[in-house]
Design a protein around this nucleic acid. Sequence first.
DNA 1: TTCGGTTTTCCCAATTTTTCCCACTTCTGC
DNA 2: GCAGAAGTGGGAAAAATTGGGAAAACCGAA
Lengths: 148, 148
Amino acid sequence: MFQGASQINLDAKGRLAVPTRVRDPLTQGGTVPVVLTAHPDKCLLVYPAPAWEPVRAQIMAFPSLNPASSPWKRLLVGFAEELSLDGAGRLLVSPELRAFAGIDKRVMFIGQGSYYEIWDLERWQQQLDRLTAGGNPVLPPGMENFSL
Amino acid sequence: MFQGASQINLDAKGRLAVPTRVRDPLTQGGTVPVVLTAHPDKCLLVYPAPAWEPVRAQIMAFPSLNPASSPWKRLLVGFAEELSLDGAGRLLVSPELRAFAGIDKRVMFIGQGSYYEIWDLERWQQQLDRLTAGGNPVLPPGMENFSL
DNA sequence: TTCGGTTTTCCCAATTTTTCCCACTTCTGC
DNA sequence: GCAGAAGTGGGAAAAATTGGGAAAACCGAA
């Protein structure tokens, strides 16, 4: 179960140093690669490769002639790339994914249960401000009884 | 049932000395870690790890395709980190959580039933002023019959 | 097919950061 | 006033980040 936020930097070569504490959980001790893909909210997703498979299978099972399917498939499958960490625990993020998420240097690495999200730092702040500064936060339907 | 307020200081390394009286209740005598996370009101929450689990489970059960769910999950799960107290009963608060809550040195530690809140002292004062100086305090809907 | 140039990949090493532990000071209660 | 406990700060060892560089692979052109 992934959780926690880390602010990290991409180096000049586009390499992203995965936080030490999440390397083993993410790669299952170095035995599996990870899958990077794109999310509609303009962030990137990181899955352990085995965890990505069922997600991809679900997307591929979308009705292919339904107009609502194609954008999802193009985004999630089209951008997906399987990568391994280098010896120093870094991911080489492709220019395409970096451009999509608006990532250049400063990024936030966010645990979200079964995957991690990678955000451009500035975009992350904006997304956060919408919840914290936006008066009364809205709970999703059916979840109005949620309490901390 | 946690209650009570303590004004405490973070040291130069970002370590927060948990008040002695709450150490044992919070860690169940040193047997469990604590979970730190973020709250929309720009304070931090501290749970005994076992007490956090059901809360996290509720958040993870939010409908994932509803746009109102993602910000909550990103805030509460995304910022969550499991920590243990060091030998002197201190928590090393990550730079990310400190930045989120605007914490640098002086903080208030506030009991809130099943968890504690950590506030930047200045922000805490402002929050208090809004209740005490703000004319007639407003009660939440359905609670208008509340009396002391 | 071969050569030159470019890009990519992999590895190493120095610096910086983190973590853990110890010691000193201050406070509190007896 | 004394003893114990708690708060506070610092330091050394270990680990991690970061940048660079050399070797290998790739590509295009002659």
